[in-house]
Lab assay of single mutants.
Amino acid sequence: SKIRITWGDKTWEWDGDDEEVWKRILEWARNLGDEELWRHVKEWVDK
């Protein structure tokens, strides 16, 4: 399956939905430097 994140007018996609993928997404969000996006992603990961 895919994980799709839409933020503003951008959309990103990742293949898979296991823990490793979420770790990569969390790292990606942090590297993007958008605090609010990172917080949202972290909330999803922690669920």
Rank of each mutant, 00 (worst) to 15 (best):
V45F: 15
I25K: 00
I5C: 02
I5E: 00
D46F: 02
R4I: 14
G33M: 07
G8D: 07
R4C: 11
W44D: 01
E27W: 07
D17E: 10
N31M: 13
L26M: 10
A29R: 00
W38V: 15
D18F: 06
T6N: 08
L37M: 10
K42H: 08
D17A: 13
D34H: 08
G8L: 08
W44C: 03
E43P: 01
S1R: 12
A29Y: 02
D34V: 09
G16I: 10
R4P: 02
R4Q: 13
I25S: 00
K2H: 12
R30T: 10
W12P: 00
L37H: 01
D34L: 09
W12M: 11
W38L: 15
K47R: 05
D9M: 02
W44I: 15
H40Q: 14
V45K: 09
T11C: 12
I3H: 05
K23D: 15
W28M: 02
G33L: 05
R24V: 13
W14I: 04
L32K: 11
W38G: 05
E27M: 09
I3R: 01
I5S: 00
H40W: 15
L26H: 04
K10D: 11
W28H: 03
D17T: 09
R39V: 13
K10G: 05
G8R: 10
E20W: 08
K23Y: 08
R30H: 12
G33C: 09
N31R: 11
E19C: 03
I25E: 00
I25D: 00
W22F: 14
S1Q: 12
D18N: 14
V45W: 14
I25N: 00
N31E: 13
T6R: 08
W44V: 14
L32G: 05
K42F: 14
D15S: 09
K47H: 14
K42Q: 15
E35D: 14
E35R: 05
R4G: 05
W14S: 01
V21Y: 01
H40M: 14
A29E: 00
K42E: 14
D18R: 08
K2Q: 10
D9Y: 02
K2L: 13
E36I: 06
E36Q: 09
K23M: 09
D9G: 12
L32P: 01
A29V: 07
I3N: 03
W12N: 04
S1V: 14
K42I: 15
N31L: 11
G8T: 02
E35C: 04
D34G: 05
W38K: 11
W14Y: 03
R39K: 13
R39S: 12
W14N: 01
R39N: 15
G33I: 05
W38N: 09
D46N: 03
H40S: 15
R30G: 10
E19W: 07
E35I: 05
E36H: 07
R30S: 14
I25H: 00
K10A: 11
E13D: 05
K42W: 14
K42C: 12
K47Y: 05
W38H: 14
K47S: 15
E20C: 09
W14E: 01
E19N: 09
E20G: 14
I5V: 09
W12K: 06
V41S: 00
G33R: 04
E13G: 02
G8M: 10
D9S: 08
T6C: 03
E20F: 12
D46H: 02
E13V: 10
K10P: 00
T11W: 10
E20L: 13
N31K: 11
T11Q: 08
K23T: 10
D18P: 07
G16F: 10
W14L: 03
R30A: 14
T6Y: 09
G16R: 13
L32E: 11
W14F: 12
K2C: 06
E20M: 11
G8H: 11
D15W: 08
D34F: 07
S1P: 11
D17K: 10
W22D: 03
I25G: 01
L32V: 13
E35M: 08
I5T: 01
E13Y: 09
D15G: 07
D15K: 06
L32Y: 15
G33E: 12
D17I: 05
K42R: 06
L37D: 01
D34M: 08
I5W: 05
R30V: 10
A29M: 03
E43T: 03
K23H: 09
E13S: 07
N31Y: 09
D34R: 02
E19M: 08
T11Y: 12
K23V: 07
K23E: 12
W28A: 01
W28N: 01
E13K: 01
W12F: 11
K42L: 15
E36M: 05
I3W: 04
H40E: 14
L26E: 13
N31V: 09
K23R: 10
I5A: 01
E20Q: 14
W28Q: 01
E13A: 04
W28P: 00
W38R: 07
N31P: 04
V21E: 02
A29W: 02
G16S: 10
I3M: 02
V21R: 02
E13C: 02
D17Y: 05
K47A: 15
E43Q: 04
W28V: 02
V41G: 00
W14Q: 00
V41P: 00
K2D: 07
S1H: 13
I3S: 01
R24L: 14
G8P: 00
W22Q: 06
D46S: 03
I3L: 06
E36R: 06
E13H: 04
T11S: 12
L37P: 01
V41F: 03
W12C: 00
S1T: 13
D46W: 02
W14V: 03
W28C: 03
D9R: 01
I5N: 00
W38C: 06
K10C: 08
G16N: 11
V21H: 02
W22V: 07
D17L: 07
L26I: 08
E19V: 14
D17N: 12
T11K: 06
W38P: 01
T6E: 12
T11P: 01
H40P: 03
W22S: 05
I25C: 00
D15A: 08
E19T: 12
E19I: 14
R4K: 14
H40R: 11
L26G: 05
W14H: 01
R24C: 05
D15P: 06
D34S: 07
G8I: 03
E27L: 11
V21K: 02
E36V: 05
R4F: 14
E43K: 02
W22C: 03
R4E: 13
E13I: 08
E19A: 12
D46R: 02
W7H: 04
L26F: 05
G16D: 11
I3Y: 04
R24S: 13
D9P: 03
D9V: 03
G16Y: 15
E36Y: 03
D18M: 09
K47L: 15
